[in-house]
């Protein structure tokens, strides 16, 4: 017993101060992409050609980057001869709308609006989620699971992951929703009593990500259930997920450290 207490003292208190303060991220962390307003060279499509997931392109409004398809690999930043694309260290990537993930030069950042009053009243102080991995590579799963450790201590926000959809207020899907997991994913969501929330964690769950277009996947959670919160990343940093969840519940979260 004594050795447990001594070790407990040695290990110290390790819960991060978030959301009161922003914990440090790696100096090399690739967060929110930033598109410069300078014009593209005529006929240049280097970024779109280099992007492995087709997240980048240009339409009548000019250059865009769809964060819902982006895996934040950084390939485009190196491919653009005009250096128009860079990756900031802003971890706040979540959005409450799919359209809000489409970034433009000088455009709006992804934004999470709190749930509407009826659901917010129910879930603001207690949100129980059933997680469904549907083709996830275990990176999104791992960085969701880590929220329940002492580092992030998800329980202090009233959020927890539960074993049964019958006990849950919503479903958090990871992965591109494989053909073989489609029935189980839809069935799990259906087993959650209304009102409920749907959350897509990771680029695969938003759009199919890297696996979009494969006949064995079905385009993530978006086509199959109403999604209230889109959290991009490959995988999203735990703080990106936590930031999205807290803002969905109407809480304030800190900006990235300067």
């Amino acid at each position: 017993m004594l050795n447990i207490l001594l070790e407990r003292l040695r290990q110290g208190k390790r819960t991060v101060a978030f959301p009161a303060a922003m914990p440090p991220l790696s100096p090399r962390f690739r967060g929110l992409p930033v598109l410069a307003e300078s014009p593209c060279a005529e006929g240049c499509a280097s970024c779109a050609g280099a992007c492995p997931t087709g997240a980048l392109g240009a339409d009548e409004d000019g250059l865009y980057l769809d964060l819902g398809r982006c895996i934040l690999c950084g390939t485009c930043a190196d491919a653009c001869p005009g250096r128009r694309i860079s990756f900031s260290r802003d971890h706040r990537l979540a959005s409450s709308t799919r359209d809000g993930l489409v970034l433009r030069p000088g455009g709006r950042q992804p934004h999470v609006a709190p749930l509407e009053p009826a659901r917010l009243k129910l879930f603001a102080k207690s949100l129980r989620l059933r997680q469904v991995s549907a083709g996830g590579c275990n990176a999104c799963e791992a960085d969701t699971n880590v929220l329940t450790t002492i580092v992030f201590d998800l329980g202090r926000f009233g959020i927890d992951f539960v074993a049964s959809p019958r006990h849950a207020d919503g479903v958090a899907v990871t992965g591109p929703v494989t053909r073989n997991m489609l029935a189980a994913t839809v069935g799990t969501f259906a087993a959650v009593p209304d009102p409920r929330v749907g959350i897509a964690i990771g680029t695969c769950a938003i759009s199919g990500g890297l696996f979009a277009g494969s006949p064995e996947t079905t385009g993530g959670a978006t086509p199959h259930l109403p999604v209230d919160l889109y959290i991009p990343g490959c995988p999203p940093h735990p703080l990106t997920i936590l930031d999205g969840l807290l803002r969905l519940l109407g809480q304030q979260t800190p900006p990235p450290a300067a």
Binding site: C51, A134, E216
Partner: peptide, 16 residues
């Protein structure tokens, strides 16, 4: 359940 068809998509590669 997790089958994403990766091996099939590696055929004809390497690509981006």
């Amino acid at each position: 359940f997790q089958h994403r068809g990766i091996e099939a998509r590696l055929i004809g590669g390497p690509d981006k």
